[in-house]
């Protein structure tokens, strides 16, 4: 079982999952470049999401009965918090699902004209950040606070790079391509609106995730977390992977599926 392993096997599991995710992303990218296969892209996205949910977000922990014998124990309360967090994520999923529905309704099987290399780059940045986040959490699970702080710092920098990349590079380039929010050009239609709203809502979640990471990093520095008691770290980790999970679907929805409209 995944949760009774030693540190090195936990870390190497993280590496293997990262390699899977990276390979799937590259396949996704080349599939989209070479032929029109929306169904295949959806399947790949679902596989990626399942890998992240199981191996990075540890969704199976919801089912554990840790601390069931003592309801005042830290483990029992952390499990209660975990359920609350996942319910929140379920609720949040519906925001993104609603955006996806709107995107399919308004754009159908077309997509905006965007810089493919940049899209792949920011996706890779976010994926790598998830990898380091997983290393950080694993370190904390074995009581290695230094290792946690180092890996979380890397995650934070990568997350910040993603955020700045989307807001200051991607949005600017999209605007230069004629994808404006206020429509001087009626031909663009709601395409710009959908693009900015989807990326903007995701970027807002990245921002909150970064704040969350900064908070747990600072608390780790103060020595609050131990191998047994680090619910805050787990929550920040799960939230960060959730942000990545959303992008797993948004990336193909905005960059890969359908035909380009001008």
């Amino acid at each position: 079982m995944a949760h009774t392993q030693d540190k090195s096997s936990a870390l190497s599991q993280g590496v293997i999952i990262f390699v899977y995710l990276a390979v799937l992303t590259i396949i996704e990218y080349f599939v989209a470049l070479t032929f029109d296969a929306t169904g295949l892209l959806i399947v790949i996205a679902i596989i990626k999401a399942a890998l992240v949910m199981y191996y990075y977000m540890h969704v199976y922990k919801l089912n554990s009965d840790e601390g069931a014998d003592n309801r005042n124990s830290y483990a029992y309360k952390a499990a209660t918090d975990r359920l609350g967090l996942w319910l929140f994520l379920l609720s949040d999923t519906f925001v993104f699902a609603g955006l996806m529905v709107s995107r399919m309704n308004l754009l159908g099987l077309t997509r905006p004209h965007l810089n493919q290399a940049l899209g792949l780059f920011v996706t890779a940045v976010l994926l790598v950040s998830s990898f380091f986040m997983n290393r950080g959490e694993t370190a904390m699970k074995f009581g290695d606070v230094k290792g946690f702080m180092k890996n979380t710092a890397v995650t934070f920098v990568l997350g910040l790079a993603f955020l700045l990349g989307v807001v200051f590079v991607e949005w600017r380039m999209a605007a230069a391509e004629g994808l404006t929010a206020s429509f001087g050009n009626p031909a663009t239609g709601p395409v710009g609106g959908v693009f900015y709203l989807m990326t903007g809502m995701h970027a807002f979640h990245v921002l909150t995730g970064l704040i969350f990471l900064a908070v747990v990093w600072n608390n780790a520095r103060k020595g609050i977390y131990t191998a047994e008691k680090h619910w805050g770290v787990e929550a920040a980790t799960v939230y960060w992977h959730f942000v990545d999970l959303v992008w797993i679907f948004f990336y193909p929805a905005l960059y890969l599926i359908g035909k380009v409209v001008q």
Partner: peptide, 11 residues
């Protein structure tokens, strides 16, 4: 912001 989600004139 003028994002024309529900504006039929803008598609």
């Amino acid at each position: 912001f003028g994002m024309g989600f529900y504006d039929a004139a803008k598609g």
